[in-house]
C-alpha cells in the first residue's frame, strides 16, 4: 500500500503489468496554464478509487488525459503495462452527464447498446444478441422498464443509470467515471454504489471523480487526492486524513470541515 503521507520525490514507479493504470510524470496544460503537474501514480486492480479535489484541481482532466481525449504536455499513462491503444477494449468511460445532448433522438436501449459498439467494430450492425446484452445491462441498473423511452423523458438519476448500463455493456475491466453520483437522487445513488461495489467484487477496477467528501469512506476503497498534483494516494483509511484534506482543499475546506465535524458529533 502506498504510504499515507506524500513522498513524491522518488515516486517513479516501474510499469507494472498487473497495475491497471500507471501514470508517470503526466503534465497537462490548457493554453499556457498548467492544470495537472507531474502526476505519478499507480491504481491497483480490483479497487474502487475516488478522485477528489477542489474545483479546477484537474480531476476530469486527469481522466480525460488518461483516455487520450486531451493531449498531455509530458508524461505517459500505461494500462496493464501497455499504452491506451493496445488496451482500449478493456477500458470503459462514463462522461459527465451534462456533456451530451439529451434531446438527441435515441432511446435508453440505444444508449446502452452503444457500450457494445467497440466489440461490434466498424460498419457492422448491432445484432439481436448485442441488444439483448444491452437489455440485460439496463435490467441490472433497474431501467429495463424504460428501455424504449427517449432519453430526454428520463429523470437525471435515470439518465445516469442508463449511462452506467452503457458502461456495463462495455464489459470492461477498468472504468473511468466522471462524477457518476452528481445530481442524482438518494435511491439512484444507492443503486449506483451497489453496482460499483458489485463490479469491484467481480475484480474490476473503478475510478470515479467524486465530490461528496462525506461519503468517500463509505463508498470507496482507495482515494486519489488531487490539487494540480497528487497530494496523497492510497487506502482511504490511511490517506483520507484531515491533514491531507487540508493540503488538498487548503483554506477552502475549513467551513466545510467544521460543518462536517459538527454533523459527525451530532450523529453520534
Amino acid at each position: 500500500m502506498n504510504p499515507p503521507t506524500p513522498k513524491p520525490f522518488d515516486a517513479h514507479p516501474e510499469h507494472d503489468p498487473s497495475s491497471p493504470v500507471s501514470i508517470h510524470a503526466l503534465t497537462v496544460a490548457y493554453h499556457r496554464k498548467p492544470v495537472l503537474w507531474d502526476v505519478d501514480l499507480d491504481i491497483h486492480a480490483g479497487r474502487l478509487v475516488a478522485v477528489v479535489g477542489p474545483n479546477g484541481a484537474g480531476k476530469s482532466t486527469l481522466i480525460r488525459a488518461c483516455l487520450g481525449l486531451i493531449p498531455s504536455a509530458t508524461g505517459n499513462v500505461r494500462f496493464w503495462g501497455e499504452p491506451y491503444r493496445e488496451q482500449r477494449r478493456r477500458i470503459g468511460y462514463v462522461p459527465q452527464r451534462d456533456e451530451v445532448d439529451w434531446d438527441f433522438p435515441v432511446s435508453a436501449l440505444d444508449v446502452a447498446a452503444m457500450g457494445r459498439y467497440a466489440q461490434i467494430g466498424w460498419f457492422r450492425r448491432v445484432s439481436r444478441a448485442h441488444k439483448d446484452a444491452a437489455r440485460a445491462c439496463l435490467n441490472r441498473v433497474g431501467m429495463l422498464d424504460y428501455a424504449d423511452r427517449q432519453i430526454a423523458q428520463l429523470s437525471g438519476g435515470q439518465q445516469q443509470r442508463v449511462f452506467l448500463a452503457r458502461a456495463l455493456a462495455q464489459e470492461a475491466d477498468l472504468y473511468f467515471m466522471d462524477e457518476p453520483l452528481a445530481g442524482v437522487d438518494a435511491a439512484t445513488e444507492r443503486a449506483i454504489v451497489e453496482i460499483l461495489a458489485k463490479l469491484r467484487d467481480d475484480g474490476k477496477t473503478v475510478v470515479c471523480v467524486h465530490h461528496d467528501l462525506q461519503t468517500i469512506e463509505r463508498y470507496f476503497d482507495d482515494v486519489i487526492m488531487l490539487n494540480m498534483r497528487v497530494v496523497a494516494t492510497g487506502n482511504v483509511a490511511d490517506v483520507f486524513t484531515p491533514d491531507n484534506l487540508r493540503k488538498t482543499y487548503g483554506g477552502r475546506l475549513t467551513t466545510l470541515d467544521r460543518a462536517g465535524h459538527a454533523l459527525g458529533t451530532q450523529g453520534g
Binding site: 506524500p6 520525490f9 498548467p34 483554506g251 477552502r252
Partner: peptide
C-alpha cells in the same frame, strides 16, 4: 521541491490565485 511543497502548503491559494503560467513555474 520548493514548488511542490508550496503547492502542498498553500493549496488554498496555489491553483487559482497564483497565475502559474508554464514559463514561470518550476
Amino acid at each position: 521541491r520548493l514548488w511542490e511543497q508550496y503547492l502542498l502548503t498553500f493549496a488554498d491559494v496555489a491553483p487559482t490565485h497564483v497565475d502559474v503560467s508554464a514559463d514561470h513555474a518550476e
